[in-house]
Design a protein around this nucleic acid. Structure first.
Length: 243
DNA sequence: AAGCAATGCAACCGCGCAGAC
DNA sequence: CGTCTGCGCGGTTGCATTGCT
């Protein structure tokens, strides 16, 4: 079988749909499997990352609240760069998000320090301790992107943007049109709701069965209707948005 | 209005850990 | 017990956007 080139870089909306769909079907554990079965030509890692950091339905979008900021600062002073650990204390936030947030503030803080104390000893390992102690100063979080609506932002501009909520809604809606049971006899509709927490490969262990490791052709044979309906549904959605 | 710099965030990389065999 | 595989984590990079001159 010809090894297809692994896709890299930004994810397209179509890829997002595919991933959401297959995670809903197989759960969010077996990423290599999902990567193969979905035909995304992405690595399992990449799929996981995309899901965890962006597509998971429990994710909050938008800026950290002052309380969350405070908590991050507090926990970071306690645990250091244990981002995943910190993230667990902030439901709906990812380690990546918190890490980025911290970096941003670190940079701001460093810049400020440079301004105010240009001849400070560099050995004071100032970043962490000083940051944790007075990072409230930057709590204003003068994010220049405050008014900017990301394509996926759910908090803002629900009318204009095509948010993740919309995507989930679309998926939920399209599910009503797709009779999943015809394709996956034995898997209840419940398994495909993409509800959270995600389903962990109910009752069947696909991974151990070589039959479930599909190549492109097999995949097309099994999923053509689902995928086609999905994407036409998706395309309708975006078409109405893009005009 | 154009060009450049700064910023924010999505995605990748490499390493380590855990479980299966 | 060693090896393999998959996953998770932290660090880093690259690019798009925004702000400034």
């Amino acid at each position: 079988m010809v090894q297809q080139e692994i896709r890299r870089g930004p994810w397209t909306e179509q890829e997002d749909f595919k991933l959401v769909y297959f995670v809903g079907m197989f759960g969010d554990r077996r990423w290599e499997f999902i990567a193969k079965v979905s035909g995304l030509n992405r690595t399992g890692k990449s799929c996981r990352l995309r899901w965890v950091n962006y597509l998971h339905p429990d994710l909050k979008r938008g800026k950290l609240t002052p309380q969350e900021e405070h908590l991050v600062i507090e926990l970071h002073s306690k645990w250091g760069n244990r981002w995943s650990r910190i993230a667990r204390k902030l439901p709906g936030r990812t380690d990546n998000e918190i890490k980025n947030y911290w970096r941003t503030h670190l940079r701001k803080k460093k810049a400020q320090e440079k301004k105010h104390a240009p001849v400070q000893s560099p050995t004071s390992s100032s970043c962490q301790s000083s940051l944790t102690s007075n990072n409230h100063a930057v709590d204003s979080h003068a994010s220049k992107k405050g008014g900017q609506e990301s394509f996926y932002d759910t908090d803002q501009d629900a009318e204009q943007g095509y948010s993740m909520d919309d995507i989930w809604n679309d998926i939920a809606m399209s599910e009503e049109n797709i009779n999943m049971q015809q394709v996956y006899d034995g898997q209840s509709e419940e398994c495909c709701k993409f509800s959270c927490p995600p389903i962990h490969s109910p009752s069947l262990d696909y991974s151990s069965d070589p039959l479930w490791v599909m190549d492109e052709e097999e995949r097309k044979m099994l999923f053509p209707i689902i995928c086609d309906q999905y994407f036409s549904c998706y395309q309708q959605g975006t078409a109405t948005l893009t005009g």
